[in-house]
């Protein structure tokens, strides 16, 4: 098995294109530019650096909690995109509400005076409430978010805590990125994601049949002794 694994070496050009696809798709503009130069395999006009940077700016705004900025940038990129993806628009507004609430909570050590929530309530009434009736999942999401203003931080149920987790920014940023890619006629997800999932899937198929080799480590913690030993077996030239 080890021998077979070594023999099935993929084509370097294929891997490079997977890397490039990832750098472009997930927004690593500086790396994409350098990679095109260093591999000598990609024409510099084959991808649009400025469009990657646009996506990165939007993403960074979301990650930093500047949702209003993000929405504005998004509208500049594509005026139709939020109208065409109402769920995404709702999620962005919900995140914006979460961010308003967060700033209040942080200001007062988790025990704010009710009056301080006034801007949050206004935002909810003006922006989110009108959308809530259009879809039951909007309504339930809005309810959960509003509850953040009522509960003490230490009495919150996990579902509510998730809303305050910064991971939500990452998730929404990822969805916005996908939506932009799709609106540009590109694949919404980098190929490397499916490749990694296929690796996990293949292992899950092989395991119950007892077909896994003794060492099925993915080899990321590379420089250890066993990895170096493996590599000797891989020299076939």
């Amino acid at each position: 098995m080890e021998q077979k694994i070594a023999e099935m070496k993929p084509n370097k050009g294929d891997i490079n294109s997977v890397i490039m696809d990832y750098l472009i798709s997930e927004g690593y503009p500086a790396a994409a530019e350098k990679f095109a130069q260093e591999t000598n395999l990609f024409q510099s006009d084959a991808f649009d650096l400025s469009s990657i940077r646009e996506r990165v700016d939007i993403r960074n705004a979301i990650l930093a909690g500047r949702i209003e900025d993000a929405i504005e940038l998004l509208n500049e990129t594509n005026t139709m995109i939020l109208d065409e993806t109402p769920l995404l628009h709702f999620k962005l507004l919900q995140l914006q509400l979460v961010e308003i609430i967060r700033s209040v909570l942080e200001k007062n050590n988790g025990k704010p005076a009710s009056a301080e929530f006034r801007p949050a309530l206004e935002f909810a009434t003006n922006q989110l409430a009108p959308r809530a009736p259009t879809d039951p999942q909007y309504l339930s999401a809005l309810e959960k978010t509003m509850a953040l203003m009522i509960f003490d931080a230490d009495k919150m149920i996990p579902e509510m805590k998730e809303l305050l987790d910064l991971q939500l920014r990452e998730t929404v940023a990822g969805e916005v990125n996908k939506a932009i890619l799709e609106s540009q006629g590109l694949k919404p997800e980098a190929r490397i994601r499916e490749l990694v999932r296929a690796r996990a899937w293949a292992e899950a198929q092989a395991k119950p049949l007892h077909l896994l080799p003794a060492n099925s480590d993915i080899g990321l913690d590379g420089d250890n002794v066993s990895a170096a030993h493996d590599s000797d077996a891989m020299v076939t030239g």
Partner: peptide, 20 residues
């Protein structure tokens, strides 16, 4: 190691699929 982890990951996937 002569192969990067990503390459090894592709190889492993192929090998597992072949075996199955």
């Amino acid at each position: 190691p002569s192969s990067a982890a990503l390459e090894k990951l592709c190889n492993q996937t192929e090998a597992f699929l072949d075996a199955v």
